[in-house]
């Protein structure tokens, strides 16, 4: 499996999870912590996140995810972190079951 395919697949999972409300922006940032973001995001994206928050007057999870899109997450953040977010949401939703 190529890295690009894996990135696109994780982007799809994150986008679908957000769209289907399996998890929300706050759930994402519970795993993609400030440390994770600061460590992995390139400087231009960090600057963009801060600039958007300064312009809006607040930094909210929703606003962060406007810049840190699912595609950006899959490209820059560790996939382990993204999967933890998905798995935790599935656990909360009770869809993991006993199997």
């Amino acid at each position: 499996m190529s890295i690009e395919a894996r990135q696109r697949w994780f982007a799809t999972m994150m986008e679908s999870g957000l769209t289907q409300q399996i998890f929300g922006p706050a759930d994402v940032l519970r795993h993609a912590t400030p440390e994770v973001l600061a460590t992995n995001l390139p400087p231009e994206l960090l600057s963009k996140v801060l600039a958007a928050s300064l312009a809006a007057g607040a930094m909210t999870p929703e606003r962060v995810l406007e810049t840190v899109t699912p595609d950006v997450m899959a490209r820059h953040l560790p996939h382990d972190v993204l999967w933890e977010c998905i798995a935790a949401a599935a656990e909360r939703a009770g869809i993991t079951g006993g199997r």
């Binding site: 697949w9 399996i22 939703a93 869809i95």
Partner: peptide, 20 residues
């Protein structure tokens, strides 16, 4: 579909498309 089933349908279909 909606909710978790839509999520699974999207992600599994995409996994097949990408060769994952």
């Amino acid at each position: 579909l909606s909710g978790p089933r839509a999520f699974f349908a999207t992600t599994l279909a995409r996994a097949l498309e990408l060769g994952v």
